[in-house]
Design a binder for these strands. Sequence first.
DNA 1: GTTAGCACTCTCGCATGGAGAGTGCTAATC
DNA 2: GATTAGCACTCTCCATGCGAGAGTGCTAAC
Lengths: 340, 340
Amino acid sequence: MAAVTDRRAGILQIIVREYVETAAPVGSRTIHDKYGVPASPATIRHEMQALEEEGLLEQPHTSAGRVPSDLGYRYFVESLMGQADLPVDEQATIRHQFFQAAPELDEWADLAAGLLARSLGLLALVSPPRSRELRVKHLELISLNDLLALLVVVLREARVLKQLVPLDGAFAQADLSLMAARLNERVSGRTASELRLATDAEDANEQRMLETLTGILREESAREAAVRVEGVAGMLGQPEYREDHTSALDIMNLVDQRATERVVPMGSLERGGVSVVIGDENPAFELQHCSVVVAPYGDQADMSGYVALVGPTRMHYGRGVATVRYLSSLLEEMMERVYG
Amino acid sequence: MAAVTDRRAGILQIIVREYVETAAPVGSRTIHDKYGVPASPATIRHEMQALEEEGLLEQPHTSAGRVPSDLGYRYFVESLMGQADLPVDEQATIRHQFFQAAPELDEWADLAAGLLARSLGLLALVSPPRSRELRVKHLELISLNDLLALLVVVLREARVLKQLVPLDGAFAQADLSLMAARLNERVSGRTASELRLATDAEDANEQRMLETLTGILREESAREAAVRVEGVAGMLGQPEYREDHTSALDIMNLVDQRATERVVPMGSLERGGVSVVIGDENPAFELQHCSVVVAPYGDQADMSGYVALVGPTRMHYGRGVATVRYLSSLLEEMMERVYG
DNA sequence: GTTAGCACTCTCGCATGGAGAGTGCTAATC
DNA sequence: GATTAGCACTCTCCATGCGAGAGTGCTAAC
């Protein structure tokens, strides 16, 4: 069993790049002519055989060229691809757009997903950051009409939750503001779990508000983050799905069902870095012909989301990783800068 | 040019129903055997020829059965389909889910889109209601840190907008609350355009807040409503897109680009009813092999959204119209009931 | 007006047969 | 031993042809 010599690595690299670009199996002649490898096609074929024995290449059928295997892509990503950053001008363009946008976590997630999807022509998923532990910053009660008030809760990270609350009896806005002030003294700065311990109120209406508040918080932390999905059309435009309709359908089903946990298993995320999951490494069977490039962002346990790219295994890993890395770090920086 | 006799209408109806179900051209034998029409296949063929001359049927090729033309579907929808309501048990199931959900416009839109898409296996678009004229109900300032406050604006329809506002100088929450109280006196109950006239403040910080407020309102009313899209997978699963990859791609592009105005031209919406746009009646060329079933909901000019269903022209119009009608009326009822 | 019979047309599936691409093997060469 | 030229081999792809099947339109009889 021969090792992966330098020349073989070079050939593998050429095959990956060429195949990513053309989506057609790569033959020895192309490698020789187009890339000027100083060896005859016959020699290159020898090397390709060796690479196939290593499990890094595959042949769709006897007389087609070679195609990288999942293992081949893995080798490419690990050892050949390098760690080039996004070109500075692209960085600047992206950065500019973020500073133009409204300083909103959800807005940023939208923007990031759109940029990522358009840049790669693939499926992008961005989850806005969620804190594990919701901490109340402030609370307000607004009278809508005689029977109905709106409870507005501002969380520490400037997120706003709201809930309609039926009232028994008429309350003027002034009464409600007073009640809100009293409640704020008790709840502001507290987390959901701290609140649960200290729910004792003299007034029935205040008691009700407190219960509503804990209800909202409980519901909110149970709710899955509304993941932004972009680039369905681009994904469907990939040549692999032009014929093979079923696998495209499977993927869309996965996305439609909001089963994003299966697409991006949060457990597998390496902190502070970009993870690449290639083909059959993927736990979800629908994605075993796909690769996922994903990076978490946000601080450790508290406010975290992720930026993910989903495409066929034949994707531009260099560009994908660079873009995902830049976006995740930019999102983190924006959060820091604005909400820090 | 023969008229559309009763028997011909019956045959057209059978062809529509059969084709909608099987997606295969319908022949005279099928009509005779499966539907027990009291006429021989030869006679039925005669009638089908007449219907083809009327432009209501088409032949994919010489020796296939017939398929309804766009005009044929139009005739079916207009004269043959009837106006059956959704079965009461389905109504009850849907209703139940709405009352379970949080009383939020956006939440309802999500729910409606999901239900519609799943019920028909097609693409559903639901726009949450947007009021033309934004009216401020209440405003609040929350101190996040020394340099940053959060401006929270509650609109009359209980929608909440927010914006980060940088501060020059330190303000305690008490100061901000006081400022908010002063501002509320000036802005609450006002629309964006009314505010624009009356922006005069003594204090520089208050002036800034007022400007921020009008900015938010301007931005918000310029922003397109975030339309809920569901059922991509179901749509792609339709037999028409199994082969014809391009048109599926075109449709997804349209949806991805947020070009929902082209999918659902708001101008064409008939108030208080369900509109059906069939095939080439559609202004967007990407949708000329699709039909759109759409109903607006909400009160006249003020708070309005729509419920829309997009599918191939071969869709179950009866079920589609009934579901869209029920959902739009239910959404309107929910709005009335909760926000009245 | 309706119907049976029949020839006709068109699609679909399948087999056939190059043409082309790319390989693996062998034997000669550096 | 590594490299290379030469060549037979294999497999896909595409165009062609053919038969089966489906459904029609036409004609003539009822």
